[in-house]
Simulated scan of single mutants.
Amino acid sequence: MTEKTPFGKFAPRFDSTLVFYVLDHMFCMVDMDDFTSVSFRSNDEEIARISERYSAVTTPVNKAMKFWLRVNLNEDMSDSEIYSCVRQAYEIIKEKYSKTKKTQ
């Protein structure tokens, strides 16, 4: 796992976006200056389940991030559930891109 702040090259206001990677692919991100939400990769089933269950879930700022969720912290989603979702995001990306590297 690695972490970078890759979006500052697009605009200085994005310098504080910390992105977590596995196998060189993003699975989670957070704004270090405004730690009020976390965004992470998911899948259709989990997006539907989590969105129905928690009001803390919103769509990511970038609408092109189809399989991502943003969760507002300190609302109705527990820390343990958020940790679980981030861990699942890591596993989703790791599994997907481990298969890709094996076939190359």
Rank of each mutant, 00 (worst) to 15 (best):
M1V: 11
T2H: 15
E3P: 15
T5I: 15
P6R: 10
F7Q: 07
G8E: 07
K9M: 11
P12S: 11
P12V: 05
F14E: 05
F14C: 02
D15W: 06
D15M: 12
T17G: 03
T17R: 04
T17N: 09
T17K: 02
L18W: 12
V19S: 06
V19L: 04
V19A: 01
F20D: 11
Y21T: 10
V22E: 07
L23I: 08
D24A: 14
H25W: 10
M26Q: 08
C28D: 09
C28E: 06
M29R: 01
M29E: 00
D31G: 07
D33F: 10
D33K: 12
D34A: 04
F35Q: 03
F35G: 02
F35S: 09
T36C: 01
S37N: 01
S37C: 07
S37F: 04
S39W: 00
F40R: 05
F40I: 00
F40L: 02
R41C: 06
S42Q: 10
S42P: 03
N43Y: 14
E45N: 15
E45V: 15
E46V: 13
E46I: 13
E46N: 14
A48H: 12
A48D: 05
R49K: 15
R49D: 13
R49Y: 13
I50M: 11
S51L: 04
S51V: 07
S51I: 06
E52C: 13
E52W: 00
R53H: 14
R53K: 15
Y54G: 12
Y54D: 11
Y54A: 12
S55E: 15
S55H: 14
S55L: 15
A56L: 08
A56M: 03
T58A: 09
P60F: 09
N62D: 01
N62F: 00
N62Q: 05
K63M: 05
K63A: 07
K63I: 00
K63N: 05
M65E: 06
M65Y: 08
K66C: 01
W68Q: 07
W68I: 08
W68R: 06
L69D: 05
L69I: 04
R70I: 00
R70K: 07
R70H: 02
V71F: 05
N74A: 10
N74H: 10
N74S: 11
E75C: 06
E75Y: 03
E75L: 12
D76G: 12
M77H: 07
D79F: 13
D79K: 12
D79R: 11
S80F: 14
E81M: 15
I82E: 00
I82H: 01
Y83W: 11
Y83K: 14
Y83G: 14
Y83P: 12
Y83L: 14
S84K: 14
S84W: 12
S84N: 12
S84M: 07
V86E: 00
V86A: 03
R87Y: 05
R87V: 05
Q88A: 05
Q88T: 05
Q88S: 10
A89N: 08
Y90W: 03
E91H: 00
E91L: 03
E91W: 01
K94V: 07
K94M: 05
E95S: 08
K96D: 01
S98N: 00
S98T: 08
K99Y: 02
T100H: 08
K101Q: 04
K101P: 00
K101S: 09
K101A: 07
K101C: 03
K101T: 01
K102W: 11
T103Q: 12
T103V: 13
